[in-house]
């Protein structure tokens, strides 16, 4: 009896927790279909597809989305490359100073975003000349790569630690040199880990507001656009873009896990 109650209470609780997690996402999507009277999109007035049809009618919105995607793409590419190399070194090799290095790499993750942003601002102001100053897309990019590197290292390393070294030894026994072994054996095996890290880096970059706010200057990314428009009322088009981001991310993850399952 007690057990039955326990199990069902847990079930009901889980249901509630899921509603709690998904409610804001639902609200964001819902209000992209709203037809508000003025600029303030808070109360449900009526259903319309107008904002989806005129997705980029709001001046500056399209530009901000393009800037965000560009920064996310480049920062992911660079951070994932640097991070993967470092993760390989940390997992595959024993060397002096390894524990210290691990700790050092953990530090940026333990630093609140606001401090990362503020210290980068101080640096850029102190350098005081191009390309670091005036603040621009390049400085945002540097900031994003900085916070992404540690995330990539941690993610790739977690995936690498379950790696079976005997596969590489087998490859070497079969006469492959180090380079061949890496590309034919090691790389395909760690690729899912790299992809996961890349996905994480991309989503962190495209959604970052706090650090970007410090390092952006006049450049407007999508989150900065949201912040700015929040003062006068977020237009439904912004909700629509948010919804598109969500659907794309969900699809990417779904496809990724499908491919991985098929491979396995």
């Amino acid at each position: 009896m007690l057990r039955w109650l326990g199990r069902n209470a847990l079930r009901a609780y889980t249901g509630l927790a899921l509603v709690y997690l998904l409610l804001p996402i639902f609200i964001v999507a819902l209000f992209s279909f709203n037809d508000p009277v003025g600029k303030t999109n808070y109360t449900w007035v009526g259903f319309t597809l107008d904002h989806w049809a005129n997705l980029f009618a709001i001046p500056g919105l399209l530009d901000s989305v393009i800037v965000s995607i560009r920064i996310a793409f480049i920062s992911t590419l660079i951070a994932t490359t640097l991070g993967t190399l470092a993760a390989l070194a940390l997992v595959r090799y024993q060397f002096r100073g390894r524990p210290g290095t691990s700790l050092f790499i953990f530090l940026p993750l333990a630093t609140p975003e606001i401090i990362l942003g503020a210290s980068l601002l101080t640096l850029f102001v102190a350098i005081g000349r191009p390309p670091f100053f005036p603040l621009n897309e390049f400085t945002i990019l540097i900031a994003h790569i900085t916070f992404n590197i540690s995330y990539v290292i941690v993610t790739v390393r977690a995936r690498l630690s379950g790696f079976d070294r005997r596969l590489e030894e087998a490859s070497a026994d079969l006469g492959a040199d180090g380079w061949q072994t890496f590309w034919r054996v090691t790389f395909p095996l760690i690729l899912p880990g790299i992809a996961a890290a890349g996905l994480l880096a991309f989503s962190l970059s495209i959604d970052d507001f706090v650090i970007t706010n410090f390092t952006a200057g006049r450049t407007t990314t999508f989150p900065m656009f949201v912040w700015g428009s929040a003062r006068v009322g977020v237009p439904p088009q912004v909700n629509a873009i948010g919804t598109i981001f969500f659907v794309v991310a969900v699809s990417a993850v779904a496809i990724g896990s499908f491919l991985q399952r098929r491979r396995a």
Partner: peptide
């Protein structure tokens, strides 16, 4: 992890609406 796939600011603003 679904909330991470929508914008952080939009999530906060959604709660502000709710």
């Amino acid at each position: 992890i679904a909330p991470f796939f929508t914008s952080f600011l939009l999530r906060v603003l959604a709660w502000k609406t709710v």
